[in-house]
Nucleic acid binder design. Structure first.
Length: 363
DNA sequence: TAGGCGTGGGC
DNA sequence: TGCCCAAGCCT
């Protein structure tokens, strides 16, 4: 790979654009404040970056506020109960992030005396912090000249240089371009400016090129169509899996819940009893697979789409007078479901059998 | 390395 | 409406 500085534009127009058009976000120090010496809190930067992994700003905002209010410092999070953290994360998705968040907080508290390491290498050694997040924290919280590359930056760079090679193979080339473009002054603002640009101007569809600070330098705009970039490798089809979920409700208004295995899909989260989720549609989706004998009644089907498969869950409901002894799980009052670590698919399953179990109809 | 790993919004 | 997409990480 040959990289030259000859075709590298200046970062100054981008930084000037950022000074005027940056987004105000709960975890962000505005460039004006930063220029006056206000430092961003590494804990807040880390917390927001982990939450923002593959997750939209709008989805993250309420979770960030909730976590910060409940656990104001990394040492507070380190001392929290795992179940509390998982319940607080419920609904945000990619639950391995929550497990790693807790592990990371504990490592920072115990191994680093409650202070985040200030180098990419040190940060990357922590659970849940990879290439992107390590560079982002190093740049934003510690003002290090790290090459920050996320999906936004990939899009901006691929267009700026009209990179024809498909992702993910083209990543090293793109990262080298980012490194050349990253200024030694204001590296954190540069990283955030690239991401704001990708989120608001250099969007996947219908980019607003006339408003872009790189409009004079952009090779895709000059010689092609920016919307054609980045080029991506072909995707594969999404398989369908089937299963059954069982919602048992006692006369006292309790529901049978249990805890999923610690690792894997929805690891460590709470669920209602379900069969295995298999590719085949067979007897396993019938009431014969229920956790105990009762008058199980079909209550429709819930379809939930995960990243790599579509789940069709047959819902079965039973009203029983009092709790039944089961090998695992517990009986939880329906009025206390909001406090459980229930992923969205489980809220949908419960809502299908008990329409008023949750405040919002969506789940 | 490529696949596992959630969820909700936009078009 | 079915897809694409969103501040990726881990194995």
């Amino acid at each position: 790979m040959t990289i030259t500085t000859l075709d590298t534009p200046s970062a100054k127009p981008l930084l000037d654009w950022y000074d005027r058009h940056h987004r105000d976000l709960p975890w962000r120090i505005s460039p004006g404040m930063a220029a006056r010496g206000v430092k961003s809190d590494p804990y807040r930067v880390w917390l927001s970056e982990v939450m923002l992994q593959q997750t939209t700003v709008q989805a993250v905002k309420p979770y960030f506020e909730k976590f910060l209010e409940r656990w104001p410092e990394v040492t507070d999070l380190a001392a929290a109960e795992n179940d509390e953290v998982m319940a607080a994360w419920a609904g945000l998705g990619y639950y391995a992030r929550a497990r790693n968040l807790k592990k990371c907080a504990e490592a920072v508290a115990k191994e680093y005396g409650g202070v985040f390491p200030d180098t990419e290498e040190g940060l990357k050694s922590l659970p849940g912090i990879g290439d992107y997040t390590a560079a982002a924290i190093a740049a934003i919280a510690f003002n290090r000249q790290a090459a920050v590359m996320d999906g936004n930056v990939e899009r901006v760079i691929s267009r700026l240089y009209a990179i024809e090679a498909p992702l993910p193979a083209a990543k090293p080339l793109m990262k080298a371009k980012v490194a050349l473009l990253t200024p030694s002054g204001r590296p954190g603002d540069f990283a955030q400016a690239m991401m704001d640009l990708g989120a608001t101007i250099c969007t996947p569809k219908r980019p607003a090129c006339s408003l872009c600070p790189f409009r004079d330098a952009c090779q895709a705009l000059k010689s092609s169509d920016p919307e054609l970039f980045p080029v991506k490798a072909a995707k594969k089809g999404k398989p369908v899996r089937h299963g059954a979920a069982f919602i048992a409700v006692t006369g006292e208004g309790e529901i049978l819940l249990r805890r999923r295995a610690e690792s894997g899909l929805l690891g460590g989260m709470t669920e209602v009893p379900t069969t295995a989720w298999t590719a085949r549609l067979d007897g396993e989706t019938s009431a014969a697979a229920a956790p105990f004998a009762a008058g199980w009644q079909a209550s429709g089907t819930v379809i939930h789409v995960f990243t790599h498969f579509e789940l069709r869950l047959s819902i079965w409901r039973a009203a029983i007078p009092s709790p039944v002894d089961t090998n695992d799980g517990w009986w939880e009052p329906v009025t206390n479901l909001e406090a459980q670590a229930l992923p969205t698919v489980m809220k949908k399953a419960i809502a299908a059998a008990i329409p008023f179990a949750f405040k919002t109809s969506r789940a």
